[in-house]
Write a protein that binds this DNA or RNA. Structure first.
Lengths: 215, 215
DNA sequence: ACCCAGACGGACGGGGGCGTCCGTTACCGT
DNA sequence: ACGGTAACGGACGCCCCCGTCCGTCTGGGT
């Protein structure tokens, strides 16, 4: 083990910075389209760099995933914040569900990172926690307003996101269309309605199995 | 349509028959728990046979998947037939959705085969077509009875099954629990209800049609 | 212009899955 | 009991991915 790991120059050389950006661009594109199950080599090839350069910038796949997912994570937080800011909590909640489902439909890799809670992708895991907690408050208010069914639990949100992840289509356009239809259905199921029978008990869904990061 | 492929002895030797059964048992167990992404070697190991024996009995993975899924496929047909036999089409439809979701929750490999996650398993694909067509008739009757929302389309069923596939949990028990909660939600979303707003347009998800023309 | 640390990438050894070949085993009919 | 052959499985060569080493190159400070 190295002892003195600090003392690194915090300024990268221009070519190194350039490569770093191209690697992240490549990773974003590939992860988004194909999920996290992409060989590191493939990312390097697409970025036009050698494997060693890739590993120098991102020693582990988790590090790469975390940095490549930063934008989407930010988008996620923005959606949730916007939903919470809506004076009508039910409308805000619906918007959050729709938008997040759509976001996930457009970025398979981010979806996997978001739902996996893989040790090492701590940034994403923390982002998910933030999202979930914010939505918890939003849901509380929506229940209070009598619009969200009283037997809704937070795990239902995870359930919906996992389910949304299962939806696959040939084209991105179809994917989004299907995802929209799905979130529409789910929202109507969540809406408080006297005709609705009680639901089966909810299940504890802490996290999904770490899939795709093993390579 | 089989031509005159029969020249070989249709009677396997006793040890061969025994191995075939053990291979299928191993495949069923592994596919069910871990999905179809299991190395052929792993199936062979579990069955206690060499790789060559496995490949002799099942030249391709599709062949193995098809035979290993036969039971579940039969169960699927039985569920659908039972649902169609119910004098109350809405109750029959609900039962079909619940039971099939549960079946899929308990067998990940079959789910993947059923949803054509694995191309070329024609038997299973045909079974799915049968299922879907039977449910189509059931749905028609449920709409006629005014219990199923009029804007339900068959692709919604595929959508639900794909979504159900996305749900993963640590234990089989939790998995089934989550799946039940999920099917409960979607059933309520499907139920005709004056308070329900119209849904976003459905997406074409059928992934079967262009098959069997060439080759 | 010079220099050298920081950055690059080709190449290497290891591991695992794939599908097949071929020498050996043992089932089954006579 | 015996022979022929169906059936077996260890072993092979192939390919892809992994993470690292090391010789080469170049950016940017003097």
């Amino acid at each position: 083990m190295r002892v003195v790991t600090d003392r690194l120059p915090h300024t990268l050389r221009s070519d190194a910075l350039d490569n770093r950006e191209r690697i992240l661009d490549a990773a974003r594109a590939l992860f988004s389209a194909d999920g996290l199950d992409v060989p590191m080599r493939e990312v390097a090839r697409r970025a036009g760099v050698g494997p060693a350069t890739l590993y120098r910038h991102f020693p582990t796949k988790q590090a790469l995933v975390a940095d490549a997912s930063a934008d989407q994570l930010q988008a996620c937080r923005a959606i949730v914040d916007e939903g919470c800011a809506d004076p009508d909590p039910w409308r805000g909640l619906c918007m959050v569900i729709e938008k997040i489902c759509e976001l996930h439909a457009l970025d398979r890799g981010f979806t996997e990172a978001f739902l996996s809670a893989y040790p090492g992708v701590t940034d994403v895991a923390a982002g998910r926690e933030y999202t979930v907690q914010e939505v918890a408050e939003l849901a509380r208010r929506a229940k209070e307003a009598g619009r969200l069914r009283s037997d809704f639990v937070l795990d239902d949100l995870i359930l919906v996101l996992m389910a949304n992840k299962g939806i696959h289509a040939a084209s991105a356009a179809t994917q989004v269309k299907a995802s929209r239809r799905f979130s529409g259905l789910v929202i109507q199921a969540f809406e408080a309605c006297p005709r609705h029978a009680p639901l089966p008990p909810a299940a504890r869904l802490a996290s999904a199995p770490p899939q795709g990061l093993s390579r």
